[in-house]
Design a protein around this nucleic acid. Structure first.
Lengths: 235, 235
DNA sequence: GACGATCAAATTGTATACGATCTTTTGCAC
DNA sequence: GTGCAAAAGATCGTATACAATTTGATCGTC
């Protein structure tokens, strides 16, 4: 689904680094890589059988997206968003997603709606399945719903911004999420589609805001970062 | 003013490439570099007395911001946004700037207002001056108004996004702008501040939308790019 | 003289090498 | 045994070198 946007700038991007970047990003978004995991340039390079040059380029790009943080002379790590960053990520989503939804609703075609529903179906199917791979696919599908709306909006810039926000959200949920049901708001996705379909735009926006609030409400945004130093043993 | 945000991630960024990146970006935003200008890695490296490695890294970063487009095996060029891209950039601004303004108004302090007014004053002073350097400084100050609002909003993510949008807007105006008065909307900035100051939030948002529309109205977004291929000779 | 193929120049893509900086450990003194 | 200092190890920062691709030119042929 995102292939269209990717293909457009495919010849503008370097072949090697791009692949590695995408592979690592996918691993982060699907939570195979946990926040804080070290990603040394040598290791990444060896893993993908390329030189450190390419590994470095990939990590730099990911750093630019906020998915990894590279610390000078120390190394690159899967980003470990602070509670404050987490709040800002969701504030940003509350700020832009209603607008994206409105734009999407203005351009949406029957084919788009069909595709959205299919995505929803797939999401539901994965939810009922068991196993890690199904869980990861479900996480991805859950984010893809929001991404697809951005794609339908027809604004490539907002689309790219949403890709960044969704990816970073995944990190935040991995860190601070509480509920076991990772995509608690599956039914909410369906409600939003229904509202769009029946042209109830304001209601769709309200539902979207509630949906985002719902995800955020499942977080425990308390600073529990490096309390392992002392506090962890003096209870 | 943007030093605060920059300083926070200063140790996470590599020293050399960052400087070059910023220097080139500034040159692009101030329109010393025209859209389409070739930026070969060797030339950039020689110019800044660094190796191609760093030049390349800087160009890649700028490519990520949408300010330069690197074409595989061909080189990097100052971005040449299409009319469609231009529309999307301004659509994105219309989408996010009202929200940013609301967020900023919620957090604004008297000191912030004072600083905003000072920026406005500076902008006016530069407008009355003559010469290229004054013109460039004026362009920068005009964008800084929007960036300062984003900074006041307290959301670093939205701030960075706005930095990208403002920079790309400068490219669009350089390409498609018609009026000689580069920052036509100087007075509008003042109006917006006034509306914020008197807590007329809805009115401030309206003014902001009008302001953006005003900038966009000064553009001539007709495809005059490479229609020279065939259409240019079959009239 | 025009068209096409082959070759040379320039530019990017990737790898390797060396130097700088930070972390960690080790050893010594107290 | 504790604490500090110095050295060893690991990792990044940057430069240089070589390979691949593209572009432009030259030469030959029709």
């Amino acid at each position: 689904m995102k292939s269209a946007a990717k293909a457009m700038q495919e010849d503008t991007a370097e072949t090697g680094a791009q692949q590695i970047r995408d592979a690592i990003r996918e691993a982060i978004v699907e939570r195979r890589l946990s926040p804080g995991t070290k990603l040394s340039e040598s290791d990444v390079g060896n893993l993908f059988n390329v030189s450190r040059t390419l590994a470095r380029a990939a990590l730099q790009a990911l750093s630019y997206e906020g998915l990894v943080s590279v610390e000078k002379n120390r190394g690159a790590f899967v980003a470990y968003p602070s509670p404050e960053e987490a709040r800002q990520i969701f504030a940003a989503r509350r700020l832009v997603e209603p607008g994206i939804l409105r734009e999407a609703a203005a351009h949406i075609t029957p084919a788009d709606i069909k595709q959205l529903k299919q995505l929803l179906l797939e999401e539901g199917r994965l939810m009922s399945e068991r196993g890690q791979t199904a869980r990861r696919a479900e996480i991805k599908a859950s984010g893809d719903f929001h991404l697809m709306l951005a794609e339908i909006s027809g604004n490539a810039i907002m689309q790219r911004f949403m890709e960044e926000l969704v990816a970073r959200s995944s990190l935040v949920i991995a860190l601070y999420g509480q509920s076991t049901a990772s995509s608690c708001g599956h039914s909410e996705h369906g409600d939003i589609i229904a509202a769009i379909e029946s042209k109830e735009l304001d209601r769709a926006c309200q539902l979207m805001l509630h949906h985002i609030a719902h995800i955020e409400a499942d977080l425990d945004l308390r600073e529990r970062k490096s309390l392992g130093l002392k506090e962890a043993f003096e209870l």
